[in-house]
Design a protein around this nucleic acid. Sequence first.
DNA 1: TGGATTCACTTGACTGAGCAAGTAAAAAAG
DNA 2: CTTTTTTACTTGCTCAGTCAAGTGAATCCA
Lengths: 162, 162
Amino acid sequence: MPDRDRTSALEGEDLETWAGLATLLEWLPPALDAQLLRDSGLTHFEYGILFALAAAPERALRMSVLADYANSSLSRLSRAASRLESRGWLRRTPDPADGRSTLAILTELGAVKYGEATPGHVDTVQRLVLGVLTRAQTRQLREITRRITHAIRAEEGWQQTR
Amino acid sequence: MPDRDRTSALEGEDLETWAGLATLLEWLPPALDAQLLRDSGLTHFEYGILFALAAAPERALRMSVLADYANSSLSRLSRAASRLESRGWLRRTPDPADGRSTLAILTELGAVKYGEATPGHVDTVQRLVLGVLTRAQTRQLREITRRITHAIRAEEGWQQTR
DNA sequence: TGGATTCACTTGACTGAGCAAGTAAAAAAG
DNA sequence: CTTTTTTACTTGCTCAGTCAAGTGAATCCA
């Protein structure tokens, strides 16, 4: 684990690295949204919700669990769920096991929608990300994102679902 | 340059890699904003504007050039500039050389603000990103982001300042 | 068992970003 | 030189996201 000098300005290679990542942070999300919106009328965030539900047993998850999977605050998820619900792709019902919880359930229509949206999205991820990296880089990227994510979690006391 | 199989679902290591990056995309920007907002009342985007101006000759740049540096649409920059202007950190004046263009100029107050905000921000970038990576990983990250960014630019016909 | 907490959301108010339409200046066309 | 087009923004509208406050349901605890 390195601990390079901590002067008070990013310089040289570090600056380049950081600038590159910052640029990625600005450009990649809009690029993903653009394809999904154009082809399926979904944001990447909404797609993520469908993805998580499609993979879940009974195609159902508690809102709080889903929020966790989708890296989302509960409030953001709540609004997104309203949108998806109004389009018939999702429905919500109180959890019979605990009246406080709400189950988000992917409808049949939602499952179809998810199936239709997937190939284009996967293709985009391949074209923009996985496909342009070598195997070694893919492996490194996995480790790199893991380390950064851990650092973030450590940073902010790690509050559950924010 | 690899060209691995293109089935229509992300699986195994590819899925892990992508999930890791997607998580980073959700968590890192808020983490950066959180520190900057708490300590300096600036978003990362606004900080980027101050950074670009501080490094520019005369501390001035045309809005369109600045938009490019800040990975921003002109409309987004225009609003951000209004906010910064109302707080006295920036002023705008028509470019004497071309009346269509507007020069964004960092004020003395803005330069001070930038100076005060920088150490904390740099420290955060070190703690969350550069400091948790090995030298080799930093180098790889630079190349990885470069490749992905290029792929995005290629993708969308690359429209100037969006 | 009953009153206070805690939990799991939902919602109102506000802010920031995107898109499309508008404006003024410069450049190009005729 | 006038008209048209292009350039460089700015702004109104709408919408997604945050924060804080609100609402029931479950749990704690005396």
